[in-house]
Each structure stands twice: as C-alpha cells, then as structure tokens.
Amino acid sequence: MMNQPIKTSIPKPPSKIKNYVTLLLVLFLLWGSSIQTDSSLAELVAGFPNMMDLLNQMVPPNWGYFDNITDAMLETIRMAVIGTTFGAILAIPIALFSASNLIQNIWVFYPIRFILNLIRTVPDLLLASIFVAIFGLGSLPGILALMVFSIGLIAKLTYESIEAIDPGPLEAMEAVGANKIQLIVFGVIPQVAAHFISYVLYTFEINVRAAAVLGLVGAGGIGLFYNKTLGFLEYDKTSSIIIYTLVAVLAIDYISTKLREKLL
C-alpha cells in the first residue's frame, strides 16, 4: 500500500468559472441586442418630454366617449365568447385523439400534438391579420383567430389532464366489456370535466384581453377605436378606451377566477 497524504486543508469551493462565463455570455447577448435595436438611454431621455406631453393630454379622460364605445366593448366580449366556445368544442375531439392513454397508436397522437404545437407558436394577432387578408375587415376574422388560438391552448391542457386521470375506472370498465365510446363517456369525462371547464374559463380570460387589441389589425372589437382616436390625435378618448378595457377585463377576470376556484 502506498501511504497517501492525509488531506488536512478545507476542501476548495466548487469553481465559479462556469457562472462567470454564463454571466459574460448573457452580457454579450444583451450588448448585441442593444446594438441591433438601436437602444440608447439618451434617446429615451430625449423622448421623455414627448411622452409626458402625451400623458398630459391623456389625463382627463373624455368621460362622454364611453357611450360611443360601449357597443364596441360588447362586441369584443361577444367575439371572445363565441371564439372560445367554438374553440372549446373543436378542442374536445382533438384532445381525446392526442391523449396517449386513450389512443395507443403513436402515428395518431404524435402528429396531432405536433400540429397543436405549431398552432400555438403563431401569435393570435398574426393569425388575425392573416384572416383579415382572407375574409376582409370585421369581427369574423377576429373570432376565427381566437378560435384557432383556443383550440391550441385548450386541447393541450385537456389532453395533459386526460393523461393524468386515474386508470382504475377505465380498467374496470374494459374488464366488463365497455367499448371506447362508453369508456370516454363514463370513465374519462367525469374525471376531466371540471378541469376542462376551468381551462375554458382561463382561455376566455386570455381571449378577452386578446380581443381588445385585435381591432388594431382590423379584426373587429374595441381595438378599432385605438386607430381612430390615435389617428386624430384625440388622446383623451384613447385613455377612455384604455380605462374601459381595464375595467371590463378586471371584472371578467375576477368573476372567472372565482368560478374556477369553485370548480377545483
């Protein structure tokens, strides 16, 4: 046996080189980004008076303008309701076909999941601008954009909760000879229904916010009025729109969150 020297010193702390390299890399990325975007603090400071000017013009909101935009606000909520509903209905079969514990064939659920992932990468406003190009101005392209977006989100969340259900009831039903439809109606739906409704409400909250800006690309709703008022430099009216949207969104969020808390 070789006599090994006994270590008496305190062990060295792990090397921090990796942290420093990461930090340097991040700083380099940020520096590159600021060059790419022409960001400069000087420009912000120089532009600051302009912005304060804008805020000053916005500050007393034009309270009378609320009457003009109530119809548009209601249309926004309608678009969100209809878009979310159709999206949720279409998401049900898609979620069932992409759950790996119901459909064991990987050639079915992997392609569907892949398409769902692709759908979710396209932001809703871009979807809306494409639908506007196809169908023209109005609320229809907005509803379609919200619908496609809802399918992507609801189907993903739902198939994940279908995969997490308790397999016991399904096995018991299979053992007594239930077919696939009976399995889904009596084994799957009772277990995921509450989750599904909660996801639909959550998507509805997101869709109300999204619907409020879809009008900027001509897809209906209150967003159209941003273009109108900003184009005519009527900033007091713009701030009325913002306040109205905030109140409506916060109210809907509050109701929806309460309902979701009750469900789960």
Partner: peptide, 19 residues
C-alpha cells in the same frame, strides 16, 4: 392588464417608430 400594444404605441410617440 394594460395592453402591451397600446404601450408600444405610446412609446412610439416618445422615441419614434422602431425596435
């Protein structure tokens, strides 16, 4: 809750259109 697109419009007024 403040829509980011509206924020962007306000910042465009301040620093001009661009990234």
């Amino acid at each position: 809750t403040f829509p980011e697109l509206v924020m962007a419009i306000m910042f465009i007024k301040a620093v001009g259109p661009g990234s």
